[in-house]
Computed example of a mutant assay.
Amino acid sequence: MTATLKFLLAWVCLQLPLQAYAERPRTESVAAPVPEADRYALRCQSRAPHRTVKPQGTMLWGTRRDWDTEKVTDERSSVLVSASLKPLRRADAQVTALKLEGGHLVATSTSFAPGTPEGSRVIGAVLQGTASDGKPVEVAICGAEPSPEDPGMVWYRIEAWNALAQEWENPCVALDRVPDPRALAVRGVWDSSGTHREVPGQLTFACENGAITKCIHWGYKPWASREGQTLAGLHQACTRMARADYCGNGRSHTHEDTGIDMYDRLGVIARTTESSAEWDLARASFEAAWAPDGATCLARTRDGRALETILQECPDRFRADAALDLGEGDRCTVRRVDVNPRTALLRNQSYGPRKAAVSPASGL
């Protein structure tokens, strides 16, 4: 038998199983049809953000720490922490000033052509910004995109002047899930300790991958209110919770993309009560309760380090105590010395350390 004939026979043998598999009848699962009235009743429903698939992280502003990527910098550093609404460094000839209303910027002008979109009026404006080290940095507004979920909130595409490279660059940190991050304009400024301060005429361009913006996206809009109560305190507590900033000093105790479940006193976000592909109740347990200036009590740390390390990091803030029951199964063993943990605005669960597998041979 020639080599060519052997090759042809081998090829035929390989194709027969494939052909049989291709001709095998398929069995697909088809959902039962929804009655027409029900189908139309389900259209255009508002979709609450699924917080358990919105991973938290270590960044506060979501900005680069330094323009020099080779430089080792502290996590509390940023190339852009605030911007001033006036005086404008540069703007369209018609724009005389900018002001912040809720979640968007508004341009004051001498005249605009009828029908000019509100967002486009601020494009091209250059504001005077400040880095965490106090150095000035210019920031330009390059685009404005109204949020589909909230017309009163606008996403801005910004660029800051990189004096090191002598070019305009997006100061926001890009991640795989958000490779081209935008920013929100939020009233006030956050300092290196993570503390928010209201400063007249000052705002923060909070980038998409940072805790300030994540907490807004989860539902805690600092300019909004619920049942007559402002959400500003809840938003600030959320920025501490998102980064596991227990001591309220701006230091995180977590890792990027760690899953969490949060729930608050005002009912903006309720506790997750059913497991899903994104959240496993069997693995989740209470972690901490939160106030705007950090944790009020802890059961454990999010990144697995010993609670003693937190007591050492802020020695006069917490004390180890008998277990305190906060209700609904939430119990903490380390509590603030100056705050009643039961007054916390926000609580969260996270996944604790996985238990080591038990070997049948060990008898344990």
Rank of each mutant, 00 (worst) to 15 (best):
L298C: 13
A284C: 07
H253A: 02
A41N: 14
V358R: 15
P35G: 13
D316L: 10
A10P: 03
G143C: 07
G219E: 01
L127H: 11
T296G: 14
A291T: 07
L281G: 13
A361N: 10
T130H: 12
R90I: 02
E138I: 04
A289F: 01
T272V: 10
K221D: 01
V358W: 11
A289W: 04
L346C: 10
R26E: 11
R182V: 03
A237Y: 09
D303G: 00
A284F: 02
I123G: 06
I158S: 03
S275V: 08
S275K: 04
A48K: 15
K355V: 09
Y156P: 03
R354M: 13
G143M: 08
K54C: 10
R121M: 14
G188C: 04
L203I: 13
P181Q: 04
A206T: 11
Q45E: 15
L80P: 05
A211M: 10
S77F: 08
T204A: 07
V334I: 12
S359K: 09
L60Q: 04
A20I: 14
E198L: 14
E145T: 13
S132Y: 08
E274H: 07
S82M: 08
S252T: 00
D150L: 09
M1K: 08
K6F: 10
R177A: 09
L60C: 02
T258E: 01
L345V: 06
P117A: 08
A91W: 06
A91N: 03
N209L: 05
L9F: 15
A323W: 02
C207A: 07
V122P: 09
R39W: 12
L100F: 11
V12A: 11
W61C: 03
P360G: 13
P17T: 03
D150W: 06
P117S: 07
P341F: 06
P49W: 08
V339H: 08
R65Y: 02
A282V: 10
G194S: 03
M153A: 12
S120H: 14
A244H: 01
A224T: 02
P200F: 06
L14I: 15
R283S: 07
L127M: 11
S193G: 02
S285P: 00
K54L: 14
P117V: 10
P171Q: 05
A125V: 15
C44R: 12
D133G: 13
E287F: 01
N348Y: 02
A224N: 06
E169M: 06
N170W: 03
M241I: 09
E208M: 06
P148V: 15
T272K: 04
G57M: 08
W161Q: 02
S82W: 07
M1F: 07
P87Q: 12
A174N: 01
A242F: 11
E36K: 13
G62C: 10
K135D: 14
R271P: 02
W67P: 02
H50W: 14
D92E: 14
N249R: 10
N249M: 05
D330K: 13
N340H: 08
